[in-house]
Design a protein around this nucleic acid. Structure first.
Length: 256
DNA sequence: ATGGTTGTGTTACAA
């Protein structure tokens, strides 16, 4: 069972890249972030024609997350618990083929410091609380998405340029490692124990051509899911194409 | 070179 996560940076603008990648890569489950559209404008038919069920949690202009699955999508939960006043569409959870999955678009948090960074940290605290709850269920669990966190310096091409960036702040990293300390596994680091494994390259200044990237898209697995982990990798192919997203997919294969 | 690009939706803001 192949599960992928991809920040598409507008599903409408990215539809040609998305359909060609789904057709070629054939993931069983896909977690999308940054749809940048309301549910009614999601290109549902085009995706369903490729054999996927679709659950969306969209929003006008910003944010928006979705779950695609070749299996039925069950027990959908929209939004991250813990703040009834939070109206940003950044979290969608569901069960597919006995695997609980979440599509996560964690707040970027820039500029640091400031209210956006405070929102990021509060959001991460809510994610930790949700992960704590989920992990007690002892089921297959994959928390995937754009975490907007570089866990370590090796996950950023130039830490000096990012010294004041929210992606590298200790407060962001502390909460990311709190997730790992709950027992979640950073699936990519099972196979690539160190070094550059970027998932995002800025559109500006030839960042892609120079491989000036950061690793901020992650798949975190519960212990039972990690036991079934066969492979995890980052697929750079979509980032190399015309009119790409600035992110590229991360995927894993589970023996379930 | 303190630059540069993309997307939404309006000429600003987020990333």
């Amino acid at each position: 069972m192949k599960i992928a996560s991809w920040n598409v940076n507008s599903i409408k603008a990215r539809l040609p890249r998305v359909t060609e990648w789904l057709s070629e890569f054939q993931p069983d489950v896909v977690l999308f972030q940054e749809l940048k559209c309301i549910d009614d404008n999601f290109p549902r038919m085009e995706i369903e024609d490729l054999g996927y069920n679709v659950a969306t949690h969209g929003q006008k202009t910003y944010n928006g997350v979705a779950i695609l699955s070749k299996y039925p999508i069950e027990d959908v939960m929209e939004g991250l618990p813990g703040d009834d006043d939070d109206e940003q569409a950044r979290y969608l959870e569901a069960t597919v083929n006995n695997v609980r999955v979440a599509s996560i678009y964690l707040p970027n948090g820039n500029p640091f410091p400031g209210p956006k960074f405070n929102y990021k940290i509060a959001w991460m605290d809510r994610l930790v609380a949700r992960a704590k709850e989920l992990i007690t269920h002892e089921e297959y669990l994959v928390l995937g998405g754009d975490y907007n966190v570089c866990p370590k310096d090796e996950d950023c091409y130039d830490t000096n340029r990012f010294a004041n960036d929210a992606l590298l702040q200790p407060e962001s990293r502390d909460r990311y490692f709190t997730l790992l300390n709950l027992g979640l596994t950073d699936a990519l680091r099972v196979f690539y124990t160190s070094g550059n494994n970027y998932s995002y390259w800025d559109y500006q200044a030839g960042a892609w051509q120079k491989d000036n990237g950061v690793r901020i898209d992650h798949l975190l697995l519960s212990p039972t899911a990690a036991d079934k982990l066969i492979k995890c990798d980052i697929d750079r192919t979509p980032r190399s194409k015309e009119r790409p997203s600035d992110h590229t997919p991360i995927w894993c294969e589970l023996d379930v």
